[in-house]
Nucleic acid binder design. Structure first.
Lengths: 221, 221
DNA sequence: ACCTGAACACCGTTCAAGT
DNA sequence: ACCTGAACACCGTTCAAGT
């Protein structure tokens, strides 16, 4: 049972797995090393530092989007193409809710590369495809901006909601406290159950449909 | 010149000022203490810890939204109300670009409180107002969710773009490197200038207009 | 009551030394 | 070539001690 030599990719994937389980805060060079049966200092052979490791983890996930089932087909229309990209990205975000928020805190490869498609390879694919479906340059760029903004807002809200679900306060304690705090906020109190209801699947689909409609009409200048 | 006794509010506001200037990463209990002419340990009299201090900074900014000029008038229609809230929030985000992203990484007061309106007081104001303009409960809640999602996506992209502007790489170095890296990405290369163009004001207004239209029609179930 | 100094257990990162 | 051990300069936080 001789251990394989460590490669950069092993380190990055171990980092993703570690964050998935314990969160970014808990990721320490020493602890990550231990999870690979290695001293922390060995990691610096393969990665320049902690910051760059987090960047690499994000890039790894974005690049993996190309392997998603949804991206294997070549969609028959730009509407279906956007649906594929959106749902593949969403699937990735929901699979790695604790890694996804790093998308915005990490320095971009290029400043005009907007999250969550922060990978030149990806943006090339996106813009090239829209061009291919007949979009003008201006229309393609405007759509890219609207699309990334939509994805970021929706997915970030979803994954941050998942985080708080993950560490639930015991039910009776929480409800009591809420009722106390909410005395001065009657509308919130009355609508509390509606606010807490999770229809994120539907909200995402509906928002996406509306965005596509918007791209079809008002953005087509 | 006897120094005033330190209050919690001083600490929180010093934290905001510090982050505005040096970024969250740089905010250290010791350094923040020094900026207040006090040892780090004195801060723990007024604040339970670093994490809670960051939360308090975010809450402080959200609560200050009520003082914004735009919120002083009582708008004549729900459309104008949403415009006021949106622009006040945007103004705050642009004034504190390095604090704003904490909105999503900080644990919420209540799990169903969605950023960037992560303040019960604020959500009460929002929902109560929409009710007052004649929205049904369901319509008000659906609008709240769509509105927060829009704000978060748009503003987060804007402030993260401001961050990379703040630490610009010397022009000649950057352009050369980009041109090299972009050889395999012809579409991105061709559209690079369009991608880099900043029309965030217009994009925000247009997106907001479309959202309002969407709330008027498709969300009114 | 409020602040300080010393201390503890941890970080990221460097570098010479081992194999 | 790759990993380790010891070390450095920093963290957040605790606690007894000062005023």
């Amino acid at each position: 049972m001789v251990r394989q030599r460590l490669h950069r990719r092993d380190v990055v994937q171990a980092a993703i797995a570690f964050i998935d389980e314990y969160g970014v805060q808990a990721l320490t060079m020493r602890r990550l090393g231990a999870s690979l049966d290695v001293e922390a200092m060995a990691l610096y052979r393969h990665v320049p530092g902690r910051e760059e490791l987090l960047s690499a983890a994000v890039s790894e996930l974005i690049d993996n989007l190309f392997d998603d089932d949804l991206m294997q087909e070549t969609p028959s229309s730009w509407e279906r193409y956007l649906q594929c990209v959106a749902h593949a990205t969403r699937r990735m975000a929901l699979k790695h809710p604790k890694v996804f928020p790093l998308m915005i805190s990490q320095p971009p490869e290029a400043p005009w590369l907007r999250p969550p498609l922060r990978s030149i390879r990806w943006v090339e694919h996106f813009l090239f495809s829209l061009n291919h479906y007949g979009f003008s340059d201006n229309h393609a760029v405007a759509s890219y901006k609207a699309f990334t903004s939509f994805l970021l807002g929706d997915l970030l809200l979803q994954v941050s909601a998942m985080d708080s679900d993950a560490t639930p306060i015991p039910a009776d304690t929480r409800e009591e406290q809420d009722d106390e705090d909410l005395e001065d906020f009657p509308t919130v109190q009355r609508l509390q159950s509606k606010l807490a209801q999770n229809h994120s699947d539907r909200e995402f689909s509906d928002g996406l449909d509306d965005l596509i409609e918007r791209i079809r009409t008002s953005l087509a200048i």
